[in-house]
Design a protein around this nucleic acid. Structure first.
Length: 414
RNA sequence: GGACAGAUGGGUGAGUUGGCUGAAACCACAUCCCUGCUAAGGAUGCGUCGGGGUAACCUGACCGAGGGUUCGAAUCCCUCUCUGUCCGCCA
């Protein structure tokens, strides 16, 4: 959520920033006028309440002095009605304001480039050079054409399209990858946590998936509960409604979880193979920091994910997302794209974002700083999407005879 | 799933015959003093969010959530949620 005060006091700046994200300005104007209206309404309500409070305290005094309270009582009954009216007005405005405020995305950081979509993202750097092959490299489903590793057909039988089953070496590699990634992150100072895969509405509001993106989530029927789309959701919300001490920051966490996404709006995209599934595994990094240190932590997280790819021998590149491609909660995002020889292109495998205080304001995560309580910064990043790493290994480590080599660092995990 | 009990500030925990209690006390924490040695003593401060004011300060809301009764509710009534204990079930 944006800071309403900033919208009141520095409207033009907020508008200019959100223009990068192509937000409809009439929404912002509505938000501003609503917030001013609410301020005015409160100003009318509060003196009435103050009067009611003060005069109510007269009753015990009157009783002591034996004075008659009939007139006072009548006056306050009347005032009470006025309060009820004003209160109703204030609440209506509050609800409207809240409904509007929670669907407006975060403002992008200054470093975010202008742009419409993924074509306007800026490549920051490339790490490792893609491997060369003495034969034409295949896509992962062709390497494994007998479905010895990934059984797409039976995944569909069990559930529906975009579900798959891992078998044999693939199942084992998946497990090895999860352990390797968690160990790698732990060595970098991230503390491992294991969290629920089913969370409530407040939790999803906190990180910004709700109310706007309910269609992307799997909902538990008959309950106000949802399957998590990423571990970022429960891990960030661990500290919802809490006031942390400055000493315990930064909180650096890593978690493995299964992730569930409806992939609404992705019809026809990546329908083959394991790139885009309704259920996938991911190892996530989440940090909670002071505003002062969040940029440093961002780099640390990005390096962690990038180094992880390097350690697996996977060529990749860093992409600074442009305003139009930036997610709802993010102020700044760098995507990591790994080289897929079979597809002959880079594909996203990690995404590291700084949300500044956007999620913190929604989730009320604060820290004690000297005198005041301030909002923390929250950051998240994948390190890495496990399924995509698995198929990246399949494509990059494929041999001419159809077998697949195992990256050196994973051997002890297999 | 059934029965009973409970839900108060960072923690423990008073307050539940409605009225200067937004909240005792203790612990923790912060600053200062004393003392000097690893422990102790003293003073002050210390809930959250918001509005007004240069400031001192004034003021609104909040005692699980929502609603009700009342001039006035942490305290009474209703609904919901959660936690604990016992029973049932179960990996």
């Amino acid at each position: 959520m944006l800071d309403i005060k900033l919208i009141q006091n520095d409207f033009e700046t907020i508008c200019a920033k959100l223009r990068k994200k192509h937000v409809d300005e009439t929404l912002l104007e509505a938000l501003r006028s609503l917030s001013l209206e609410l301020k005015k309404a409160r100003l009318e309500l509060e003196p009435l309440q103050a009067e009611q409070n003060a005069k109510s305290k007269l009753f015990p005094l009157y009783a002591k002095e034996g004075k008659d309270t009939t007139a006072l009582k009548e006056e306050l009954s009347l005032n009470k009605q006025k309060i009820a009216q004003e209160l109703e007005h204030v609440r209506t405005l509050e609800e409207k304001l809240e409904a509007l405020a929670v669907v407006i995305p975060n403002t992008p950081d200054e470093c975010v480039p202008e742009g419409k979509d993924e074509n306007d993202n800026i490549e920051l750097k490339r790490v490792l050079t893609p491997p060369t092959f003495s034969f034409t490299p295949k896509e992962h489903w062709d390497i494994d054409n007998k479905q010895e590793w990934i059984d797409f057909e039976r995944g569909v039988k069990l559930s529906k399209s975009r579900f798959s089953v891992l078998k044999n070496q693939a199942a084992k590699l998946e497990r090895a990858l999860i352990n390797y990634m968690l160990d790698f992150n732990t060595k970098r100072g991230f503390h491992e946590v294991a969290v629920p895969y089913i969370v409530n509405r407040e939790t999803l509001m906190g990180t910004g998936q709700l109310p706007k993106f309910e269609d992307d989530l799997f909902k538990i029927e008959g309950e106000d509960l949802f399957l998590i789309p990423t571990a970022e959701v429960p891990v960030t919300n661990l500290f919802r409604d809490e006031i942390l001490t400055k000493e315990e920051l930064p909180l650096k966490m890593t978690a493995y979880s299964a992730c569930f996404r409806k992939e609404a709006g992705s019809a026809g995209k990546d329908t083959r193979g394991m790139i885009r599934q309704h259920q996938f595994d991911k190892v996530e990094l989440v940090c909670i920091t002071t505003p002062e240190q969040s940029e440093v932590i961002f780099e640390e997280m990005l390096n962690c994910a990038s180094d992880l790819l390097t350690s697996l021998g996977l060529a990749h590149r860093h992409l600074l997302l442009c305003g139009g491609d930036l997610g709802f909660s993010a102020a700044k995002t760098v995507d990591l794209e790994v080289w897929f020889p079979g597809q002959n292109r880079y594909r996203e495998i990690s995404s590291v974002s700084n949300t500044h205080d956007f999620q913190a304001r929604r989730a009320k995560i604060r820290f004690k700083d000297e005198k005041a309580n301030r909002l923390v910064h929250t950051l998240n990043g994948s390190s890495l999407a496990v399924g995509r790493t698995l198929i990246a290994i399949m494509e990059n480590y494929q041999q001419e005879d159809g077998t697949i080599a195992i990256p050196e660092v994973l051997k002890e995990y297999m």
